[in-house]
Amino acid sequence: MHSYRLTHLKELESESMHILREVASQFDNPALLFSGGKDSILCFHLARKAFFPAKVPFPLLHVDTGHNFSETIEFRDKLVEKYGAKLMVGSVQKSIDEGKVQEETGFHASRNKLQINTLLEAIESNKIDCAIGGARRDEEKARAKERVFSHRDEFGQWDPKNQRAELWNLYNGRKRPGEHFRAFPISNWTEMDVWQYILLENIEIPNIYFSHEREVFERDGVLYANSPFMHLKPTEKPFMKRVRFRTIGDMSCTGAVDSPASTLEEIIAEVASTRTTERGSRMDDKRSEAAMEDRKKEGYF
């Protein structure tokens, strides 16, 4: 006898496809925020599933800090070509050159916060009414409270205390002119779910997620990739090590993990036994207890 039961991965997949189809139906001009990280790759994969055999009906938007891993950019361009997707790029460097934001200085300088301005500008200039993001509620405590359809006012701000109720699988994307939405189709996925699903569906991801030899240096107990974007203190000496990245963000704020995991199976085993969160290696979240909430209110995704 057939058992009409879905595994947790298939149930999550179905929920995400439903959300992506709601976005396409309720908004005129959505775009998928694409960083080249595994979560945005997953969102794109789910979008392909949701609309197959039609093409994904929205473009990808990459907010480019200029401090990327070259592997991520190569991966992005290959993916865009393979699936004939449309890519839009918002450049933080351009925002800096135009004097709209100021580069942070010092050893801990990061372009992470500067992204907010570039993102909001890209949303406004491209008239995007819904930016789809790969944020997950298990990543961070402020994200745990965010709706799947998350309203932004005309300044792009999030008001966590005044969020719309969200019940069943009914999503309310109504807004006034000038306002926009963020939609988070993989809200209910955990880091483990993402890895298991990548293995299950055989999804391609950038090779820096797997263990590789790289020049790194250590700062505050975290390993960072050595690059022209990093200013090393005199005491910080770069050295070669086998590492991989657990998350991929801007090079200046993404820490590497000391890991021999070179297959998806090994990554899954590593994630299962690890005792720190994924964002534990993200310098941007360590700034204060409410760092993420504060950035999100301003328009960070």
Binding site: T7, H8, E11, Q196, L200, A269, A272, S273
Partner: peptide, 15 residues
């Protein structure tokens, strides 16, 4: 090394 999480995940459901 294979963990239980890896082998079992195809059989898990969601509550």
């Amino acid at each position: 090394m294979m963990t239980k999480e890896h082998h079992g995940y195809l059989d898990m459901d969601l509550l």
